[in-house]
Amino acid sequence: MSATATARRPKQRKGDLIFSGTTRLAAILILVALAGVAIFLTVEGIPALDAPPNKLGGAESLAGFVWPLLFGTLLAAVIALVIATPFSLGVALMISHYAPRRLAQPVGYLIDLLAAVPSVVYGLWGIAFLGPELVPVYRWLEQNLGFIPFFAGPASGTGRTILTAGVVLAIMALPIITAITREIFTQTPKLQEEAALALGATRWEMVKMAVLPYARSGIVSAVMLGLGRALGETMAVAMVLSATSGVTTFNLISQLNPSTIAANIANGFPEATGLGVNALIASGLVLFVITFAVNFAARAIVARSERRLQG
């Protein structure tokens, strides 16, 4: 900025200066914290490249150690989203367009409350209730749908499988996705809805013609936020999932399950020593990068569909 420009600038009031200074400081602090985490993970993770197999849960290399964990993380998150997305959209639509207002509001509050339940409670519920309840379901799946690799079995006797973990994660992601999509659905322009209705659309046809196209990019970002939650969730998965290290399998209902990165860190950290700690930190770095990638991908998708909308 040149001297003349500074001179011409009107005198700033004290309140403005303090306010802009505080917000700038806050923004910079966030970036510093983020950079600090990234640097820490990288610096502490690098030594793990030379870790011997006994520090890597028996794996030959760091990649061999992280890959099954990454696989488990993604698998659990995908299961969670496959279950949570249709449910969330259904609930959000019910609240925004179907239920009478008297019913819609309390239901909305209840869904928001789901987000406030601590994850350790979900974990307890998963171990003590959902897992055992799902055992007969898994047996049935094994007997009747065993030809599908997902349900090859043998069915777990405790129900603490990756599918159970996915269901628990789905319930945890549900309030996030529902809250955001509900908000977007209710913002659909009245004019668009009336255009569809005046053409003789039924309620569902109106939703298809006006509400869903309007909300498309919002749905994507809502799902991605839900994915972020599912990827990073630690406690509930660590409690529910009975994991075996080094496993990668699409068999969702057996005793042999891959762990997730976050849960593996939580379970392994207390006993880890030396390079074992570095290996866990390296896996944390991978999770960090994946989460970032997911967020960027979501933003890219949203931006593209918005551009198309403006045509």
Partner: peptide, 30 residues
């Protein structure tokens, strides 16, 4: 009422084509 609206067309105060649909799809929507 859905049948009634299919037989009685309506044009609104502000133009409200479906923004995500093409011109072609807008016309054929009904």
């Amino acid at each position: 009422p859905v049948q009634v609206r299919r037989q009685i067309g309506m044009v609104f105060q502000r133009p409200n084509p479906f923004p995500t649909m093409s011109i072609y799809d807008n016309v054929i929507a009904g």
